[in-house]
């Protein structure tokens, strides 16, 4: 369970370029929930994810994961409990290492990085089995370097790396945005089957409202660093893109006019 309480973050404080990226953001994500975060450019979605993952330390408020206060915990220490997939397919893998080596780095998350073999025969069998369930043919290319993979294959690999050790929380930062529509579908399908149906608590930043409605148990909408909408449970039943837009405009007092948000 993830609890955010009054989280705020200001960049370049005290200068002319001061920017309130997050203003007093609070919400709770319960066990097994899949939440989508929607918002225009600069609304603070990515900053929010970066505060939760520890890339940025918030200026105020607190972040709790399964009851433990992680607000000031260094990124690498909280990474044991948090899986991440980035928008840029290049960011999730080491390009000069093989697929199986990348998986091994993720697989030994939370265990000592000592001088035992980086990968064992048993690990290899496990990776092959997991990869084959993705049905991308990657199980036969385990000795290929990750740099040889297409964007979609890399995102799939990064997704597997993020969940191969079941995380307490998964953060998906527009993980399909850089992919072509067909590949994007495929990766989203993998997300549905291996994340949502497995009940891994997830925060997914997306520009696609249809995807958000289709997949989520909770929808969070952000505007100018504020959380303006938090819909879940019965309120989500029968919701449509139009209704969501109306709600957003009612709550934020602004027209939702960002080109990058896909309404359809």
């Amino acid at each position: 369970m993830l609890e955010l309480c009054g989280v705020s973050k200001t960049f370049m404080k005290g200068t002319a370029n001061e920017l309130d990226a997050l203003k007093d953001v609070s919400f709770t994500l319960s066990q097994g929930e899949f939440a989508a975060i929607i918002g225009g450019n600069g609304s603070g979605k990515s900053t929010l994810l970066n505060c939760i993952s520890g890339v940025y330390i918030p200026d105020g408020g607190s972040i709790k994961l399964d009851g433990e206060d992680i607000t000031y915990k260094p990124e690498y220490k909280r990474a044991h409990a948090i899986g991440r997939v980035f928008q840029d397919p290049l960011k999730g893998t080491a390009f000069d290492m093989t697929i199986e080596e990348n998986l091994a780095i993720a697989w030994y998350k939370g265990r000592p990085r000592n001088l035992r073999w980086g990968i064992t025969r048993k690990d290899r069998e496990l990776f092959r089995e997991k990869l084959s369930r993705f049905e991308l043919g990657l199980e036969d290319r385990m000795k290929d370097k990750a740099g040889l993979l297409s964007g979609g294959q890399r995102q799939a690999l990064t997704l597997l790396m993020a969940i191969i050790v079941r995380p307490k929380l998964l953060l998906l930062d527009e993980h399909t945005a850089a992919l072509d529509p067909a590949t994007s579908r495929k990766v989203l399908e993998l997300t549905k089957v291996f994340v949502k149906e497995e009940g891994i608590p997830t925060l997914m930043v997306t520009h696609n409202m249809k995807d958000a409605i289709e997949m989520s148990t909770r929808i969070l909408m952000m505007n100018k660093g504020k959380l303006v909408l938090n819909v879940s449970g019965d309120d989500l039943k029968g919701i449509t893109v139009d209704k969501l837009v109306d709600l957003f405009e009612e709550k934020s007092g602004e027209v939702l006019d960002n080109d990058r948000i896909l309404l359809g």
């Binding site: 990124e75 960011k91 080491a94 998350k109 000592n114 001088l115």
Partner: peptide, 24 residues
């Protein structure tokens, strides 16, 4: 080719990914 060797090699490739895997 050890567990530590793997993360050492990955550090030059992609530091962010190594931190995301819980390594300082």
């Amino acid at each position: 080719n050890t567990r530590f060797g793997y993360v050492l090699r990955a550090t030059g490739d992609n530091e962010g990914m190594v931190r995301a895997a819980g390594v300082n």
